[in-house]
Structure formats: structure tokens, C-alpha cells
Amino acid sequence: MSVKPEPASALFAGPFALATLSAPGRPAFPALVTPDGRATALQDAFGEPGLTMRQVMERWDEVLPRLRALAADPGAQREPLADLRVHAPVEPRQVFQSGANYRQHVIDLHVAHRAPGDDRPEEERRAEAAEIMDRRAAEDLPYVFIGLPSAVTGPYDDVVLPAWAEKPDWELELAAVIGRPAHRVTVEEALEYVAGYTIANDLTDRATVFRRDMPQIGTDWLRSKNAPGFTPLGPWIVPAESIADPGDLRLTLKLNGETMQDESTKDMIFDVARMVSYASQTARLLPGDLVLTGSPAGNGMHWGRLLRDGDVMDAAITGLGVQRTRCVAKAAS
């Protein structure tokens, strides 16, 4: 089931974006979308039946000029988005997730996740967290881990909360979509490998982040972040050329209409270029892969209000549109 947001005057920044769409009896297909809410199937426009969004990403340097021309063509065949279902815009092979990358968010989490027996005043623990963040920035040490593509779901799909998830939480994030294979790229050249940007909500079950049975092992990202549908993505991939400064975008998440997250990407400790470069020093980033850049302050742990059945999340980032997802609690089997 899906719950689309109300139409906006312009769906996104720039003259076009990309989406993966479908209709009854019509399998999912990549499309060019214009800000007025109309879509052109790229399989038809390019004369390539079976074309996928990942293949578009794999040919990004060649395809981008054709997309610009298609967006400007007044004779191009377009159909209303209202008649189509919007899916996650791309199926990544790899998802690179950035942890502890918004200064205020990490300070809040440090305070919320009080260690057993730590009875220090909140002010002292906040000061400690701030010092840790400043040291990480000075030492240039991003934190990246791997997510599962199977956790990705559409921007308007219901999010199923597993019965075992005791503390499901939201985490709105800016996601960079890779457009060229990237391995050991420098910070200065990293953005040349980014095709565009989209919205991700990196849901986390806070109760399973840390292994209580083996605390020396640390975090358990498989359990806490990778349930099916725990990464709503999209609705669009907005080309990087349409986003003037990814380091100055506003992220806003509303829960049942109430604003919970409202922050700028200026609060990131490590910017998009640094995160892409850092991930590429170890891994080979592939076209269509995602680099999630962390979440700002204002998650459920901060508010003392976690996700539950019937909640509706509206997540927006400047120039990238809005996703709306409804939470559905799964009964214990």
C-alpha cells in the first residue's frame, strides 16, 4: 500500500529527475520526470526495451546529455505521474551507510545511550560527546558500514515494523547515487563520481544496535538496520548538476504532521565528497550504489517517542522532493 504526499508546485529542483515507475500490467521501468509531474519512459524514448535504472547509471556520462535534450523536447511523449506507481528509484548493488556524521545528532545519541552505571550529569556527558566529535573531525575519521539492498523499499510504501523491533526509529538522510565506478578516488574528485541525490530514511531498531550478549563485539547493524523495507528510498534521483551545494540542504522529517528533524547538511562532520572518497579507499563503488551520509538530530530516541503502528512519516530534503511512508506493525508469529 502507498500513501503519496500532496502534489507540490514543483516536485524537485532542476529541469528533470529520474524515477522507476510501473502500472498495472506494465513492469517497472526507468523514466524521466519533469517538475510538473509528468513522466517519459526511457525504454521508449531511447528505443531500448528492458532498459533498467542501473543500466542508466552505468552509462551516466553518455546518457546525461540525452536526458537534458529529452527534458527540453516539447514533443516528447509524457504521461501523468498520477497514473503510475513510484518505486525506489534504483536497485543498488551496495549500500554504504555513514554513522555518527551529524555533530548534534551524535551528541544526542551519546546522551540517550547512557551506559549502565553512568550517573554523570547530562551536561558532562554532552561535553564528552562534543569533544569526541571534534577529535574525529580533526583526525579525519569517517565511520562507514554496509547496508543490504534488500532493505530498500519505495518512497510511498508501507514500512513493516517487525514484532522483534522494540525501539524502531527514523533517520532521514541525504543519499548520493554513484554514476561511475569509483576506487581510491580523492576528496577533490569524488563528486565527479556522483550522478545525483535522493532521499533515504535509514530506519534503526535502537534496542538491537548493541550486542548485549557480547558487548566487546560492539554494534549489530545487520539486526538493527536491515529488516525488509527499513530503507525507504526516493522518490527521485535528482542529477547532481541541479543541486548547487549538497553541503547546504535542509532535511525535514515530520511524524504524523509534527516536525521531528529539521536540520541542514551544514551540520555534517564529513561532507559528501569526503564520505564517497573514504568508502572508495577500501571498496569499489559501482554505478547505482548508494552512499548514505548520516542523519541529523531529532530522532525518536531524542524525543522519547519511537515508531508504532499507524505512524506516517513525511521526509523532505531541499530540491529532492518528499517521501511519505506509513508504519504497519507486524504481529508476532
Results as ranks from 00 to 15, higher is better:
residue 227 A to I: 11
residue 226 N to K: 06
residue 260 M to G: 02
residue 214 M to N: 14
residue 214 M to R: 14
residue 236 W to I: 02
residue 245 D to F: 05
residue 255 L to A: 07
residue 275 M to I: 15
residue 201 N to H: 02
residue 244 A to C: 03
residue 269 I to T: 02
residue 242 S to F: 14
residue 220 D to V: 08
residue 209 V to Y: 00
residue 225 K to W: 00
residue 237 I to N: 03
residue 235 P to A: 11
residue 244 A to H: 08
residue 214 M to G: 07
residue 238 V to D: 02
residue 199 I to P: 09
residue 266 K to G: 09
residue 226 N to A: 03
residue 270 F to C: 02
residue 269 I to C: 09
residue 217 I to E: 09
residue 275 M to R: 10
residue 222 L to P: 09
residue 274 R to A: 10
residue 273 A to W: 03
residue 240 A to Y: 04
residue 270 F to A: 01
residue 242 S to E: 06
residue 249 L to R: 00
residue 259 T to W: 03
residue 248 D to M: 05
residue 265 T to C: 06
residue 272 V to K: 01
residue 260 M to L: 15
residue 250 R to Q: 11
residue 262 D to R: 12
residue 201 N to T: 11
residue 222 L to R: 08
residue 250 R to L: 07
residue 207 A to C: 01
residue 245 D to M: 14
residue 204 T to Q: 03
residue 229 G to P: 04
residue 261 Q to M: 08
residue 229 G to R: 05
residue 277 S to R: 06
residue 242 S to C: 14
residue 239 P to E: 13
residue 217 I to Y: 13
residue 222 L to Y: 09
residue 248 D to C: 11
residue 243 I to D: 11
residue 218 G to K: 10
residue 199 I to H: 08
residue 218 G to R: 07
residue 247 G to V: 02
residue 243 I to P: 01
residue 271 D to L: 00
residue 234 G to W: 01
residue 254 K to R: 15
residue 215 P to I: 00
residue 264 S to N: 07
residue 223 R to W: 12
residue 237 I to W: 05
residue 254 K to M: 07
residue 233 L to W: 04
residue 229 G to K: 00
residue 209 V to P: 03
residue 208 T to S: 13
residue 199 I to A: 10
residue 255 L to S: 09
residue 278 Y to Q: 04
residue 231 T to D: 12
residue 202 D to P: 02
residue 215 P to F: 06
residue 226 N to Q: 12
residue 277 S to W: 11
residue 204 T to Y: 02
residue 259 T to E: 12
residue 236 W to F: 15
residue 231 T to S: 11
residue 275 M to Q: 13
residue 275 M to Y: 04
residue 213 D to A: 15
residue 202 D to S: 05
residue 208 T to I: 10
residue 201 N to G: 07
residue 241 E to C: 11
residue 227 A to K: 01
residue 210 F to D: 09
residue 258 E to Y: 11
residue 245 D to G: 02
residue 223 R to N: 12
residue 254 K to F: 05
residue 208 T to Y: 14
residue 240 A to E: 04
residue 205 D to G: 02
residue 255 L to Y: 00
residue 256 N to F: 04
residue 198 T to H: 01
residue 269 I to R: 12
residue 237 I to Y: 00
residue 239 P to D: 10
residue 255 L to F: 00
residue 217 I to A: 15
residue 202 D to H: 02
residue 226 N to D: 13
